[in-house]
Each structure stands twice: as C-alpha cells, then as structure tokens.
C-alpha cells in the first residue's frame, strides 16, 4: 500500500507541473483576449487553436484535481495522517474542481456574447476568480504533496478504534462552514442584486457542502461493517453531545433574532435567502469547532 501511495503522490506532482503550465497558459491567453473581446476588436483566425489548447489545459487541470484529491483522501484513510492543511487542500480541491465546469460555461457564454455584441465583463470576472482558486489549489497541492507524511516510514501500529477520520470530518466541517460564512459575508458586503444573490446562495451552498458530504461518506463507508453503537467511543459520544448542546445554544438566539428582523423588515429582502445557508454554515462551524476543541482536551 505504501508503494502505491508513493506512486500516486509522484503522479499527482507530475500532473501538477503540467496543470500549472496549463494554468499559466490560460491566464496569459485570458489577459491577452479579455480587453480585445470587451472592446469588440477583430480576433484573428488562430483563436480556434488557442481555444482548443485552453480546453485541453482545463481537462489536464481537472485530471490533476481528481488525482490529487484521491491521493490525499487515500493518505488520510490508509496512512491515518490528516493534518489541517491536507483537509483544506481537499476542500479547496473539490470546490475548485467543480468550478472547472463553470469555466467551460463562462468561455461558451463569452464566445456567444462576443458574436452577439453583448458585454461579457461579469463572465470574465468569474473566469479570473475561478482561475485564482485553481492557482490557490495548485499551490496548496504542491505544498501538501511535497511534505512527506511523518507516518510514511513508521512501523505500522494496529488501530482498532481510529479517531483520524472523526477529526478529519470535523475539521472539514469547520473549514466548509467558515468558507460558506465568508461567502455569505462577501455577498452581503458587495450588495448583489437579489436575483443573483438567490442563485449564488444555492450554488455556493452546494459547492461548499460537497467536501463535507464526501468526507462523511468516506467515514460511513469505513464504518459500514461496525455496529452503529460501535461507531463512536464513549468520549467521542460525550464530545459530540456537548457540542450539539453548545450548537443549539448558539443557533437558537441567532435564528430567533433573524426571525424577528424578518418580521420587522418584512419579506422579499436579502434575509429570505441568507437565513437557510446561515443556519447550515453556523451549525457546521459551531458543532465542528466545539467537537474538535472537546476531543483534543
């Protein structure tokens, strides 16, 4: 298994080098094309080839995302090493990987809008933000993959009741919740139109929840052969019970305040769209952070 994991890590790093070149190519091409498209300047015939190369580099970046996330998940499961940086890389990797689909959609929209003579500034902005996230993931992936796990060459100690996935699941919950809350805050500060806010709150909500659901699925898969009563040991059970109580104590007053505000201000405003994601992300942050704090005491 160690040899397989080592090969997987080397493959990820090699793919990362190619993907990084693809990212640089895309960014240079976008920086060259963006002003020309926005000013409706005539584009030369080589664009089709350049576009094809962009598609190819996006595919390579996608494969790099997939292989890296699988490598890091395999390290967590088989080597029982789950640092915060590794989990953050997985979370960003899943979000960034899914945004590759948004890149393709934005590129198609830009092409159509250029032909129709419509403005495509917002599509370019999304494309550059997405690429910023791809760059962030690539850097995080290189740092994480280059750092050898301290457990790699250590003699294997048999573990009957493992707490690595328990800790990993709650660290992911905390990170996803914080990303979700930050996204809500940014959306509020930038004062987006309600229609855009509605679409964004659903999209970001799904994107941010996916890594958490993935790690929970992995945890459930690992526990499938155990009895439900054996899934947690007595301290873990006590920790999540205390964390649940704390979560209720935090969420109830905040949600009550939101409800009162909605009654006072009236319906049809931004509160209609943020209360649910706020409820979900606040619950994740308070439950996961409290569990992590209590489990490490």
């Amino acid at each position: 298994m160690d040899k397989f994991l080592k090969n997987l890590r080397v493959t990820s790093i090699s793919l990362g080098v190619i993907a990084a070149s693809g990212l640089v190519y895309n960014l240079i091409l976008f920086a060259y094309l963006c002003p020309k498209v926005l000013h409706f300047e005539t584009l030369d015939g080589q664009l089709e080839i350049l576009g094809l190369l962009t598609g190819l580099s996006l595919a390579l970046i996608g494969i790099f995302h997939l292989v890296t996330v699988i490598t890091l998940l395999a390290q967590i499961i088989f080597q029982r090493s789950a640092g915060t940086l590794k989990i953050l890389t997985i979370v960003i990797g899943i979000i960034s990987g899914l945004l590759l689909l948004s890149d393709l959609s934005m590129l198609q929209d830009i092409g159509k809008q250029y032909v129709q003579g419509w403005d495509s500034a917002s599509e370019w902005t999304i494309l550059f933000i997405n690429h910023g996230l791809h760059v962030l993931f690539t850097i995080l992936a290189f740092v994480t993959l280059a750092t050898r796990s301290g457990r790699e060459n250590r003699p294997e100690e048999i573990v009957v009741k493992d707490d690595v996935l328990f800790i990993a699941a709650h660290t992911t919950g905390l990170l996803c919740g914080m990303i979700g809350l930050t996204a809500i805050l940014v959306a509020l500060v930038t004062r987006l139109r309600l229609s855009i806010f509605e679409i964004l709150s659903v999209t970001i909500g799904v994107l941010v929840l996916l890594p958490y659901l993935l790690i929970l699925s992995v945890w459930l898969f690992m526990k499938r052969k155990e009895k439900i009563t054996d899934w947690l040991d007595e301290k873990q059970f006590l920790d999540i019970s205390r964390a649940s109580l704390l979560t209720i104590l935090i969420i109830l007053p905040i949600m009550t305040l939101m409800g009162v505000l909605q009654r006072i201000i009236g319906f049809g405003n931004v509160l209609d769209f943020i209360w649910f994601p706020l409820f979900i992300f606040l619950s994740m942050v308070s439950f996961s952070s409290a569990t992590l704090y209590l489990s490490r005491r």
């Binding site: 100690e157 573990v159 009957v160 301290k235 873990q236």
Partner: peptide, 18 residues
C-alpha cells in the same frame, strides 16, 4: 503505548490520553 491500551479496551487513543 496509549494506542495499544486503547486497542485492548476498545476506545480511541485520544480517550486514553484524556
């Protein structure tokens, strides 16, 4: 080790540590 004791009594290492 804490892990060996944890295995023997069916809990996690962190529980023995706590």
């Amino acid at each position: 080790s804490q892990q060996a004791l944890a295995n023997a009594v069916g809990v996690t290492r962190l529980t023995i540590h706590s």
